[in-house]
Design a binder for these strands. Structure first.
Length: 600
RNA sequence: GGGGCGGUAGCUCAAUUGGUUAGAGCAUCGGACUGUCGAUCCGAAGGUUGCGGGUUCGAUUCCCGUCCGCCUCGCCA
């Protein structure tokens, strides 16, 4: 086989006169008939023009070149020379061409279903790209993403290595634990009727590595959660998972801010400033979401007090609910920018979050409200105008409901308006830490608590006594206990989250108790953890970054499948390999699994 | 499980109110051409309109079901 001497993005006028060899795919061929053929050869790095002509090539070689087609895999040896037809400024190798003396077809290709050419525009539909993923990945844009992803993991490993972290692997076949996402499960052949679960994260293993004295741990690991995907979510995804011993919250945050700074600097050239810290409740009150995007305004303004005595039935109804509230968004200049059709659409939009609608007023030239619900809020207007900072020409949008619904609806509406009015400055980066999350959320319907982060998150140190003494029935007190958790947010997306962990058995048992777990169940599911916490567990804490989302930010895509080499579809299918698929009866028998028909 | 959008030639798309033989660009095949670079020019071939049913004289078009892809709610400790 002809071995290459250079890649396809390398040759310049400096190489003129040299004999070189290239290997790659036929990106395009331009056949001028008897005696002149151009072939663009492509590899991971770029394109180079090969030329075959009667002056320099034998008849045999020309005939060989004549048979080349798109996506043939070839190797070519020849001489570098300055292009006779003038340079092509679009290519790094645009000033030269290789006059081929020897050509090898390493692998012919059928006519490909589509060409991996970004310049052609008109990308095939994603279904086709996924079925022939190996062709899609040949596209320079996809190669660029794969390179960026590699670069990120390399920088991450280097950084943590410098900081004294050890990369340690943890099991893929794990014990299924309650709570959290739905597990993917794997049958055990050796133990009939018993099952493994794939890890939702290596959470407990990394904590046990701290108990093991490993001190600082890192792993870039696959995690599995059997839940429906979204544009930024996939059942199988990758975490950058870290844990440190003998640390408090601030130590972890400093270390982790460092890796984010290093990655953005080295991969993007972006300088990440010292990150702001925002308490969870502030984020919820101002942005209606625990991962605010501060690249634009449209902050939520609380009108609950100002409208406490409103006669407007929608406001009255909202305030009568448990934790009812009224929020407003002021859209500067909205009177012109937001059409009636759009604001009507917003009412439909918030319904999916359980809200009733979006009352609207416009502010007229005199600074008075008009249209929409203007006549219902005349009495409160001076206060509303003051609080929202309403100016002539603005539109004010209202949300009134229970706290949870109102914040969710208004938070999502804020994002939608920003997108609709193109208010997001894509050149900006907004990083922050969100801290002081509640330990628990109370679920009214189920009448029980859920861990907001996960059940191994420690209370903030000042809260430990209050926590240990809390009456499980005292919902308000328990909801008020703040954890030692932290989320790192980039442009309105959570790129990482973590906490100081519980390293005290009593505290851990109390959490299980509050989550409604019996002593027996806690022992059955977590005895290994509870034992370990009594056998010398150092204080520790850590974080996990979502590598896929990080790479999405770094490559500017809004689709997680673009940053995964072989992603799955909405129903967990791999369109290329056609997984999942049936297995033989023998396989099932060996695993003690019986296939049953379920009557609908 | 719910809501929305989509599926027509290998690919990207079009097809009037339900009406003649379902069209175009790219790709493919054949031909022409010695300086192109998304080559150009001439010609040809290429269709289970996702699948199944229904309404109709007639269905890409209307109706029902179903499969697949995407977005989304729920879900994602």
């Amino acid at each position: 086989m002809l071995k290459r001497t250079h890649n396809c993005n390398q040759l310049t006028t400096e190489h003129v006169g040299q004999t070189v060899a290239l290997a790659g795919w036929v990106n395009a061929y331009r056949d001028h008939g008897t005696g002149l053929i151009f072939v663009d050869i492509r590899d991971r790095e770029g394109l180079t023009q090969l030329v075959f002509d009667t002056e320099d090539a034998s008849q045999e070689l020309l005939e060989q070149a004549d048979k080349l087609r798109n996506e043939f895999v070839i190797a070519a040896e020849g001489t570098v020379r300055v292009r006779e037809g003038g340079p092509n400024p679009k290519l790094a190798t645009g000033e030269i061409e290789v006059v081929v003396q020897r050509l090898e077809v390493l692998s012919a290709s059928e006519t490909p279903p589509f060409l991996p050419n970004d310049e052609k525009g008109d990308l095939p539909r994603e279904e086709v790209r996924l079925k022939h993923r190996y062709i899609d990945l040949r596209r320079p844009a996809m190669q660029q993403i794969l390179k960026t992803r590699h670069r990120v993991t390399k920088v991450v490993r280097d950084y943590f290595d410098e900081q004294g972290f050890l990369e340690i692997e943890t099991p893929i076949l794990c014990k299924s634990t309650p709570e959290g996402a739905r597990d993917f499960i794997v049958p055990s052949r050796n133990q009939a009727g018993n099952w493994y679960a794939l890890p939702q994260s290596p959470q407990l293993f990394k904590q046990l590595l701290m108990v093991s004295g490993c001190d600082k741990y890192l792993q870039i690991c696959r995690c599995f959660r059997d839940e429906d995907p979204r544009a930024d979510r996939q059942a199988e995804f990758t975490q950058i998972d870290c844990e440190m011993s003998f640390v408090e919250r601030e130590d972890v945050m400093q270390t982790m801010e460092g890796v984010v700074r290093r990655v953005f600097k080295e991969v993007m050239g972006v300088e990440v400033p010292t990150l702001d810290r925002m308490p969870y409740h502030e984020a919820m009150d101002r942005y209606g979401i625990d991962r605010p995007d501060r690249r634009y305004g449209l902050e939520l303004v609380d009108l609950s007090e100002a409208c406490a005595n409103s006669e407007f039935k929608v406001f009255q109804g909202a305030l009568a609910k448990r934790q009812g509230m009224i929020k407003a968004i002021r859209v500067p200049g909205g009177a012109d920018k937001l059409t009636r059709k759009m604001t009507d659409g917003y009412t439909e939009f918030v319904k999916q979050f359980g809200a009733g609608g979006v009352p609207v007023v416009k502010v007229n030239a005199e600074g008075k409200p008009e249209t929409g619900i203007a006549r219902f809020i005349e009495a409160e207007w001076p206060a509303i105008a003051e609080l929202t900072g309403a100016e002539p020409g603005d539109t004010i949008l209202f949300g009134a409901d229970s706290r949870t619904t109102c914040l969710k609806a208004m938070g999502e509406l804020r994002i939608k308006i920003a997108k609709d009015l193109d208010l997001i400055d894509e050149s900006k980066w907004d990083f922050l830490w969100v801290v002081d999350f509640p330990m628990f959320e109370y679920d009214e319907e189920g009448g029980r608590f859920y861990a907001m982060h996960h059940p191994f998150t420690a209370p903030e140190p000042s809260q430990i006594d209050a926590f240990l003494n809390a009456d499980p029935k005292d919902v308000d007190t328990i909801e008020g206990i703040v954890s030692a958790g932290y989320d790192i947010v980039c442009n309105g997306s959570e790129i990482g989250g973590g906490s100081i962990r519980i390293h005290n058995q009593q505290v851990q048992s109390k959490v299980f108790e509050l989550l409604g777990m019996s002593k027996e169940e806690a022992k059955d599911k977590f005895s290994f953890l509870l034992d370990a916490l009594q056998l010398g567990a150092p204080p520790h804490g850590g974080i996990a970054f979502g590598l896929d989302r990080l790479v999405m930010h770094l490559t500017g895509t809004d689709n997680i499948r673009d940053v995964i080499a072989f992603p799955k579809t909405q129903i967990g299918a791999d369109l290329m390999t056609e997984a999942p698929s049936q297995v033989s009866e023998d396989q099932l028998k060996e695993l003690h699994v019986l296939e049953v028909e379920i009557e609908e």
